[in-house]
Amino acid sequence: MKNFQYVNAPDVEDAVSLLQEPGTKAVAGGTDLLTELKERIKMPEILVNLKTISDMKYIREEKDDLRIGALATLSEIELHRMVRERFPILKEAISVTATPQLRNAATLGGNLCQSVRCWYYRHPDVKCWLKDGDMCYAEDGVNSRHAIFGNSTCIAVHPSDLAPALIALDARIRIAGSEVEGELLLEEFFTLPTETHRQSTLLGAADLVTEVIIPHRFGPSNGVYLKAMERATWSFMLVSAAVQLEWKGDRVREARIVLGGVAGKPWRVREAEAMLQGQTLSEGLAQSVGEAAVANAKALKHNAYKIPLARNLVKRGLLELTRRKA
């Protein structure tokens, strides 16, 4: 780890102004950033500690929504009564994230802003395109964990479990900063890296996630998060599916299907969602929706397994929600 200066941010305003100094990085839980610092993938001159900001760590019920401060830890969110009752999909997503120790330290904001797990990106001696190099080494290299959707030069996948679940809940995100400021749909917060903006969120260098807002629109127990992983704990998804339904009687009024582990951002499949509108769910329909979800997927050399995996997770998610409703 290269040495750095360290400063505790007293509030959001000061954090944003501190972050405007070049060579500065924000740290909250640190569970992702510290691994990058140790490998010298990131070498900031100054670390700004956000955990000293007292008004960014809360979970608050309001009339129309649930508001979660960016500094709330994953454990705090997972154990919150309201989250367990109203948003089981979020609880399910957190309970299969990392380990108890990591969930006790990792924050909501950090989870959404974490770096990709691509082994070329994570290698200290490889200067890949995402690290401002010239090329993506995964494209012709070992790409078994990489994307089946998207058209970015970088084919790494976004590793967050919370992001697909929150997007399926129509969550919004609040940002404070110098380049981006205000509230937007979480879905729009994530971007595929482009030539001039090589990262997976809209955030500028001095911008901070301050809050996530979940509207009370879906009834309880109407969402499910399924994650295919190499072992039952402590691993990033191979593929995951967040499926959220709004029922009207026996029919689906509206659906959200968001895939994880398949693209550089959480991947919402609107065509597949639309097929469910106004329908009663059968095994046949669940199968067709699963197939539609992967209709535009393109396999790389080593990741063709992800396509049937994604299709079947969507199908299983829909059937599981039907079962829970009965």
Binding site: G30, K38, Q101, L102, A105
Partner: peptide
């Protein structure tokens, strides 16, 4: 030393965390 084994687990305000992924100063 990178949060993938658990042998550095300590309790931080009563909750288990990995000591390798925390700075002493924080």
């Amino acid at each position: 030393d990178e949060g993938t084994c658990g042998s550095c687990t300590v309790l931080f305000d009563g909750k288990p965390v990995y000591a390798c992924l925390m700075l002493a100063i924080e």
